[in-house]
Simulated scan of single mutants.
Amino acid sequence: MSSDATQLSRAFTAADAALAGGAVAAGDRPSRGEITRVLAELRAALFPRELGVAADGEAAVATHLASALAGLREQIRRCAVLFAAERPGEGLAPDQVDRVTDAFASELPAIRTLIEGDIAAAFAGDPAARSRSEILHGYPGVRAMIDHRMAHLLYTLEVPLLPRIASEAAHSATGIDIHPGATIGERFFIDHGTGVVIGETAIIGSGVRLYQGVTLGSKSFPKGEDGNLVKGQPRHPIIEDDVVIYSGATVLGRITVGRGSTIGGNVWLTKSVPAGSQLSQARVRTDEVAAEGSGI
């Protein structure tokens, strides 16, 4: 090893030692690749005809589920170990891993029902949609929601780290960034989807439709007396039922967009609006410019 590499190694080791938390063996660290595989197996178990092996029926579902849940249990354990090393006394205890995995598995039928509603919303909301298989294979908004609904369940079960790793894997695959803490109701559809961002404490009702580039974000980040950001405060929008938000719109802060409202493209919204609101950009002004180049 070169002297430069040795010095860097010592510097990194010293910096790591200065951080809170003990060492974690490689076999106890979560694997993003394995988590991505587990998500794929879960998608195949939920939709074996479209996303699973060629064979259909109970045997195919059981095969995918067995593989997925075994991998999930191990990744939950690893995430708990890594989190506890950094924050002793917090997160899941080792004896809780099986309970949490079983609780996740028991909710999969409900997750499937929610996703069926998302698929139906995509078919109803997009005139280009021709089939269920096309939606499951080719619609990034639906793919993002399948993974989000599973990540959100893990989040509500208080699994550390893993929900965020899962949501980032979905973000990488779809261009849609949904924090696993976001609460999203039935029949949710993201059309096109690239660039959509939905923050941790956002609450979205039923029958909501978003287009590409929409941000449901935070307007400000409150700090405590110690000067550090206050964690877990509600800071993202509440979107009520049957709202449509068009491309490029930005909705910030703990505000409410009332039921049945339509938010036009590129609108910047930081105040609550009542039910049935119709918001759009200011009218574009057009003026003629003289041929010789004088101003307007």
Rank of each mutant, 00 (worst) to 15 (best):
V24H: 02
K271M: 02
I115F: 04
T174N: 03
A170W: 08
A110S: 15
R43I: 00
S2E: 07
K219L: 15
V251S: 09
V142G: 07
A202N: 00
V159A: 05
D56G: 14
Q212G: 12
L65Y: 04
A66V: 05
D4M: 12
L162Q: 01
E50Y: 04
G195W: 07
V257N: 08
L8A: 10
V81N: 07
V196Y: 02
P160L: 12
G205L: 04
G227K: 11
R77P: 01
G33S: 14
A129M: 08
G265N: 01
T6W: 00
I35T: 11
D242A: 07
P222H: 09
R78H: 07
A18E: 13
T36R: 15
R78F: 02
Y139Q: 10
F47Q: 11
G117H: 13
G293F: 09
A103K: 07
Q278W: 11
I190E: 03
T63F: 12
G276F: 06
G295D: 13
R164I: 03
E86K: 10
G213F: 06
I35P: 01
I146K: 00
A68P: 01
V244C: 09
P163I: 11
I178D: 12
R187T: 08
L92G: 01
L39V: 03
L51M: 11
D95R: 01
F189L: 13
S277H: 10
L136F: 05
I263H: 02
R10P: 00
I245M: 02
V214T: 10
G195M: 04
A129L: 01
S3M: 10
L279G: 14
I190D: 03
D147T: 13
F12R: 10
I76L: 07
I263G: 03
K271Y: 02
L162I: 04
L161R: 01
R29V: 13
A103C: 05
S9R: 15
R285S: 14
A173M: 09
G207N: 11
K231E: 06
V159D: 04
Q75W: 01
S294D: 14
A151H: 08
